[in-house]
Amino acid sequence: MSLISWLRWNETSPRLSPRSPAEMVLETLMMELAGQMREAERQQRERSHADRKICTGVDYSWLARTPRPTYDLSPGERLQLEDVCAKIHPSYCGPAILRFRQLMAEHEPEVQEVARLFRSVLQEVLERMKEEEEAHKLTRQWSLRPRGSLALATFKTRMRIYPFTSDIRTISEDVERDMPPPPRTWSMPEFQVPKAD
């Protein structure tokens, strides 16, 4: 093949339009789900082969071809999962995948349960996103407040309520006045003059 024909082919090939971050997150998460479903199905198949070998005492698995995947998501379920994946911010894509892999390793679910586990991870990530967004809004509100209201807010947080001190005069207070003065504070030693006999 000559170089000129290759260059012409390159010029006529359609340029791929850059994908948005949301599309990339959606594609990455759905690929992860498909991969984990294949892995769960493979493990399920290996467990059934091991059980069959134990029951019959003979292993014929080397005769069988690798079967096609038997479980697939329904179109409605796939659309629902894609809708949830599209809401995930790109910065949360990696942690979502790591959490999903961790739960897969812990639970070793059947292939039918993988989509449910994936959905729970996505909901968990969405809740975390919402909490962090609300915390970010609160910090932004505090930074935009006028200085006077901020001083008042810090004053209110510094106020303490002491239940044993009161400005209300009581009868016991009048009785306590006739008592000797209280001892000095702990930081100062108390000096007493010896009494003369």
Rank of each mutant, 00 (worst) to 15 (best):
V125E: 08
Q102F: 02
M159G: 07
G76Q: 10
V111A: 10
R101L: 03
D167C: 12
D72W: 01
L79M: 13
M129K: 08
T170M: 08
L81G: 02
L117P: 04
V121H: 02
S166G: 05
M104I: 02
W142Y: 01
K130E: 14
P163W: 06
A135R: 10
R99Q: 07
L117T: 01
E108Q: 15
Y92Q: 12
H89T: 06
D174W: 00
A105G: 08
K137Q: 09
P69T: 01
L150E: 05
L103P: 03
L144V: 03
R158Y: 00
E133S: 06
H136G: 09
R101D: 06
E106N: 14
R101S: 06
Q102S: 10
K87C: 04
P163T: 02
Y162K: 12
T170V: 01
A105V: 00
E108F: 07
E127V: 12
S172L: 15
G76R: 13
M104G: 08
H107L: 13
R116A: 09
L126H: 04
R140M: 13
I97W: 02
T157C: 10
H89A: 09
C93V: 01
A86V: 04
Q112I: 03
S166H: 14
P163L: 15
S166L: 04
P95K: 12
I88G: 12
Y71M: 11
Y71G: 07
Q141Y: 03
R101K: 12
F100N: 10
Q80W: 06
R99A: 07
E133H: 10
T70A: 14
L117F: 05
L152F: 07
Q141N: 11
L73D: 11
P90L: 07
L122D: 00
R116W: 08
K87H: 01
Q102L: 08
A96F: 01
H136N: 13
V125T: 10
F164Y: 13
A151L: 15
H136Q: 13
Q102K: 13
E106P: 02
Q112K: 10
L138D: 04
T165C: 12
E108N: 09
L122T: 00
D167P: 14
I88F: 00
Q123V: 00
L122E: 03
V121L: 11
P163H: 05
L117A: 07
I171Y: 14
Q80A: 10
Q112M: 10
P75N: 02
T154Q: 13
E133Y: 07
R147C: 05
L103Y: 03
R101I: 01
S91V: 14
C93T: 03
R158N: 01
A96E: 02
E124A: 11
E77N: 08
R160M: 09
S149K: 08
L144H: 03
L81K: 03
T139V: 12
A96M: 03
R169P: 06
C93M: 15
S172C: 11
S91P: 09
Q112A: 06
